[in-house]
Amino acid sequence: MTTTASSHRQIAPPALEMTNVRKVYPMGDDEVVALDHATLTLGSDEIVALLGPSGSGKTTLCSIAGGLLTPTAGSVVVGGQDITAYNTKRLAKFRQETVGFVFQSVNLVPFLTARENLLVVNELGRRTGKQQARSRADQLLEELGLSDRRDNLPSQLSGGQRQRVAIGRALMNEPELVLFDEPTSALDTHLGEQVMQLIRSEMKSRGTAAVVVTHDERIVHYTDRTVRITDGVLHA
């Protein structure tokens, strides 16, 4: 497995290549530059912490990398796919199949059980048959220590358990890149550390790249590299 992943990584394109990306929002007669000529490349199994204060543009960068926003200028290539000029429909398909998200607060569908929250990804993207999808969901939940919670609704789970289900959901479509937006902000220090350890081990065991958006300096211990962002400008 390691050998396969290793040889795969040798031929795999970078997980993310953002080149001179700008995101500008019109504000009356003026404009607000949320991201200013950002250039960032992630290796295929690299975990990068994107560190910056509130309003620095880190969520904007993450959203552009994940196809939730389109850049005003520059190019974005994820897993070899140039998504810069994708329309809404193609971006939705890209999000189904190529990236995984763990958001800060909105993470699970409340009327689906933990297992179904993972299965819905397969329903949307349907890469595999139902049986395979169920096996994969069960395997992910087991890895995340949630086997006995698979039939629980989100309301029946603790904050840490919910975040772990969200990680499972983000991995369900075997993404090229997983984007974590403040994944520990709603958790206490201990739970936050547990979640970050889990994120690292899950990403590394799969050879999947990840961007972890945070303003918490402690997160950087769990990542391969730290990129800082201030006022929309990246600093390596």
């Binding site: 939730l68 939705a92 199949e97 998200f101 699970l108 569908v109 819905v120 949307l124």
Partner: peptide, 18 residues
């Protein structure tokens, strides 16, 4: 009431039509 869930589903790639 379920707007958050719908937003999440859209974010992970569910088309509006679905």
């Amino acid at each position: 009431q379920k707007s958050s869930a719908l937003t999440l589903l859209r974010a992970i790639g569910a088309p509006s039509s679905v």
